[in-house]
Amino acid sequence: MYQTNYHRASSLEEAAKLFKKGDDAKFVSGGQTLIPTMKQRLAAPTDLIDLRHIKGMSGIKVSGKKVAIGAATTHYDVSTNGKLAAVCPALAALASHIGDPAVRHMGTIGGSIANNDPAADYPAAMLALGATIVTNKREIEADKFFKGMFETALKDGEIITAVAFAAPTRAAYVKYPNPASRYAMCGVFVADHGKGDIRVAVTGAGNDGVFRHRAMEKALAGNFSADAIASIATSADDMLSDIHGDAAYRAHLVNVMARRAVAQAG
């Protein structure tokens, strides 16, 4: 790893100030993506600004159907929060399958969303839940936040502080994990928001990162059943192709995972 200067911010203002002062500063939360990347010398920030100690950055608030999750909340805390599990068990279950226990103890929802890895789990949840990504500057709809592989709407120095959404009436996330890394080869989050408002989001498969599957959403709006989407194909032209699986394979997985998710959502 190249040399870097570590700073611990205690407020958003301090974090923003430290970011401006650094030559090529980067924020760090759980470090479960950034530290390995720095060790491989694929990133070399001059300054690291730790966001985990900022007051109010972590924790889960549930009131009625409204859910707000602080950006520095760990995957472990999302997976074990009883109030969240009561209104949106699909999200808690998703968090419980990210990486392994040690990764879940450090990794955060804000870090995962800011990183927008094309195989990460949370981006699919954010899109399907119609979440709002709250930053220190503004609120961004998930639909406008994820901009392709590792690309988001975040401006330089902008900090995610929380995500917020209304709990769906039913939802499920099913992923086909890469047998070695456990990242999604394809993961589908299906959420029914009532009155025919269905959202289907796919991660791990698309060659431009997470995406909504509009054809499936339409079919499920009329008939929320696995059969309703059984014949809906996904174009292999839009799929990732790598040593783990080619585009045709992933296109097929999208349908299988989506049907399983619908069946599981009930």
């Binding site: 570590y6 470090g31 690291l48 730790d50």
Partner: peptide, 15 residues
């Protein structure tokens, strides 16, 4: 009190 991978955590972050 929580298991973490010490190869993926800066010493300064554990201060």
């Amino acid at each position: 009190g929580k298991a973490v991978k010490s190869c993926t955590l800066l010493a300064a972050a554990a201060d």
